[in-house]
């Protein structure tokens, strides 16, 4: 895991696209980090988003109806 300049470990976001149902909840809750491709499936814009985005990322993971998002760290 990488760290930001002052040594705080960053969170890391991974997704399971074979679970994704394309609800778009993540892209609405955390548009800086998630988007949908043309088929609606999740794409990750930033794999290691800054900490100020944490709340939205966690919400996106929690509210993903297909549980396709994992947040590490």
């Amino acid at each position: 895991m990488t760290a930001d300049p002052i040594g705080v470990p960053l969170m890391r976001v991974t997704t399971e696209r074979d679970r994704c149902v394309g609800s778009g909840q993540c892209a609405m809750l955390s548009p800086e980090v998630f988007d949908q491709d043309d088929e609606g499936l999740v794409t990750v814009l930033q794999e290691e988003p800054a900490d100020e985005l944490r709340e939205g990322v966690l919400q996106a993971a929690d509210l993903c109806p297909s549980r396709s998002i994992r947040v590490h760290g």
Binding site: G22, G24, A27, M28, Q36, D38, E39, G40
Partner: peptide, 10 residues
Amino acid sequence: VPPKALRTWR
């Protein structure tokens, strides 16, 4: 339907 269209309506 394109996902962005659905999101617009939502």
